[in-house]
Simulated assay, not measured.
Amino acid sequence: MRTPLPLLLPAVPTAERDLVALGVSRRRLAAAASSGRLLRVRRGVYLDPARWPDDELGRHLVRAHAEQANLPAAVVSHRSAAAFWGLPIPQASWADEPVWVTLPPGAGSGPAVGRGWSGRLRSCRLTRWRSPPSASGSRRSPEPLPISVSALTCRRV
């Protein structure tokens, strides 16, 4: 009998399809999530539980990254983009704030797209951050994330 390789826990929110492409079975992902060895950030996106931030804003930013792992064409927008930029936002609690993403034409829509508003863009100026700003400065993303620069740079169709 062959012994399975140890499960390498993803340091950033990673789509199930990407983990399966690396050779991890869906059954193994489900077992790891059930046992608590792997955190299910949203349906089909996983993360090392040690990487889950303690603060609400940090969790919101990780959930935004998870939305992009689920749908790579998604652009973090609106209040979520303001959080990435470190802009002051009147907010009582980030725990209940939905992740805001915007989609380019033809990128899909529906319940699989984010938990917040999703709309269509004709054109949008984007910035890719390698390390999104954060309140603590401790969160670093090894992957660039598309984040909208300003609501004024985008036109809704």
Rank of each mutant, 00 (worst) to 15 (best):
H65E: 06
A66Y: 03
A66D: 05
A66L: 03
A66H: 03
E67G: 01
E67S: 02
Q68N: 14
A69C: 04
L71S: 14
P72D: 00
P72G: 00
A73T: 09
V75C: 03
V75D: 00
S77Y: 10
H78V: 02
H78S: 05
R79P: 03
R79G: 04
A82F: 02
W85T: 00
W85M: 05
W85N: 00
L87F: 12
P90L: 06
P90Y: 02
Q91G: 01
A92W: 12
S93D: 08
S93C: 08
S93R: 12
S93P: 02
W94P: 00
D96F: 12
D96V: 10
E97P: 02
E97C: 07
P98S: 00
P98A: 01
V99H: 11
W100L: 01
W100C: 00
V101I: 06
T102F: 10
T102R: 13
T102W: 13
P104F: 15
P104Q: 08
P105H: 14
P105S: 12
P105R: 14
P105L: 15
S109P: 00
S109N: 07
P111I: 14
P111V: 15
A112H: 11
A112Y: 07
V113N: 02
V113M: 03
W117K: 10
R120Y: 10
L121D: 01
R122C: 09
S123R: 14
C124A: 11
R125H: 12
L126Y: 00
L126P: 05
R130W: 14
S131T: 15
P133Y: 02
P133F: 01
S134H: 03
